[in-house]
Design a protein around this nucleic acid. Sequence first.
DNA 1: TTGTATGCGTTATCAT
DNA 2: ATGATAACGCATACAA
Lengths: 339, 339
Amino acid sequence: MIYITIKDIAKKLNISIATVSRAFNDKSDIKTETKNLILKTAKEMGYRSNPMAKKLMQKRSLTIGIVVPEFMNSFFPEVIIGAQEILFEKGYQVLITQSNENYETELKNVKTLEDSMVDGIIISQSSETKNSIYYQNLINSGFPIVFFNRVCNEISSSKILFNDFKWAFFATEHLINQGYRNIYHLKGKESLSLTNDRMKGFVEAHAKHKLTVSKEQIIPTGFGIEDGKRVANEIIDSGKIPDAIFASNDPSAIGAMQVFKKRGFRIPEDVAFVGFTESKMGAIIDPPLSSVLQPAREMGREAAKLLIAQIENLTTFKPQTIVLNGQLNIRESSVLEHH
Amino acid sequence: MIYITIKDIAKKLNISIATVSRAFNDKSDIKTETKNLILKTAKEMGYRSNPMAKKLMQKRSLTIGIVVPEFMNSFFPEVIIGAQEILFEKGYQVLITQSNENYETELKNVKTLEDSMVDGIIISQSSETKNSIYYQNLINSGFPIVFFNRVCNEISSSKILFNDFKWAFFATEHLINQGYRNIYHLKGKESLSLTNDRMKGFVEAHAKHKLTVSKEQIIPTGFGIEDGKRVANEIIDSGKIPDAIFASNDPSAIGAMQVFKKRGFRIPEDVAFVGFTESKMGAIIDPPLSSVLQPAREMGREAAKLLIAQIENLTTFKPQTIVLNGQLNIRESSVLEHH
DNA sequence: TTGTATGCGTTATCAT
DNA sequence: ATGATAACGCATACAA
């Protein structure tokens, strides 16, 4: 691959490289005709500016990094799409990495992005996150980071959040309103704060309706379909069958539901189900899964906006937290039909 | 953010930058102790090399770009994971972009990646691809590109393929062996060659079993769940009901199956279904969808290997085509139980 | 309005 | 084994 440089253009036109450079950055004074001539010949010669050189000069990469824990479910891809909408528009490149729900990989990704001199990072932590020292140091050193969805509470940085407590509360209350009284909660990974928030919403909804929650109603599960399956089998084997299950996310709800179905339970007559973080899968299974819809794309857009604001006003910027609204999509998995 | 440079280290140690540089690229001769000293102080000072400067010198970005049409389904994410496994291992960064099944966006992505001076591109074309002139020019100019899955036949470049004909043939034959005789094929987008290959497999399987295929058995559909739904409604409304449907991909099969189910058809007794490109969704719907499993991760790995080989032997490299094997996963959506 | 010269942080090519 | 210096491609302060 042979690259044309401004030097080549300058030589061909018998002018200085400074003038050529000016033609492309139309801030400086330059005669319109020479500028047009340069632009014209540049196009003819197939000139493209070298981003490396430009970045080296300008001390910024115009690239931002995104770190997500996975992208096999549709949630994170959709967040990324949202972020890209804003970032591309503003002239930023996007480097996407995924940590496969692994803390070490996540950290490696962040370091790789740092090495790539990204101007900032948008990140949702893996479910195995151990501590946040590294991020706190990074932030203290002035590096722009926006967390979304899966954040650590201790960290003082910009965050795009979902009101997990509130929507877990609504989801649970919906089950209570449907008449269910023995509801289990499949809890996500302990290391994430959203896990706690969703659990609190579950508990609080019970409290509001003067129902008690015993410890065995809350079961540490995880986020995968397999986790849901495993726990469902354990529940059924234990002999104590709930009449409804509120899971911390859709895959675990789906896995559990499949096991209950397979082992002869009718849904929602015997056991009702509600998931969290609306997934495409939830809508197509039988019966369709009630779930809390998170505004994934908007989350990405807001995260990108906040990051850009931070990058462009590094000195004056104060960390912001934005809490987005959701929606409870009620489907057949949690609605008793009264004939 | 303040960055430490080799100049800073040199000044502090009262040595030349050349020596410092050597310490980090252990090819040149350098005394072990000075090297260790440099490495030690570099670490203390928090030095990180500036990739922009390095890339500017070396005329390569050590970055490769990936372009996929979408990543809401699990297929492309899995390909990307596979490609990353190889690329990270070899020290390459990965820039992921998605074209949203749009030809213009796809081209814009490629140009953005070019501007970012990626050393090569791994790409699967959008379903709206119009022509391949741009790619042909790029390849002719010596730019390394590997296509996978969705490729244009006219282009002479490296390709990672799936034997779409063969597996469509097997999938169709499976339905024929199950006794189905009036099988419809939901065809994908015309612009993709895999569409044609899968259709040919469908036709050829009929020919082998001395069955004729009428034109109305082959229905242009598209790749989305909505496409499948729309076409299914049209079929049912037309009154001519097939006894089996072989779809060009899983989402369209799933969409169609949902409509047939909803409108009172039993699956697979009234209508059987087989999809293509195994998706996570197919396994969890009711009944589970038979489908052709494509080795997504392996596809990504092979694409990455081929691209690296091409980048590292630019002059001698000849385009290669690798065809990967798959697997027909037979599930309840296409198996009649004989009691 | 244009040209000259310098620097961005590296690596590479000479010397020494 | 080390140092001085010239690139890499671009932007910019300063001179002309």
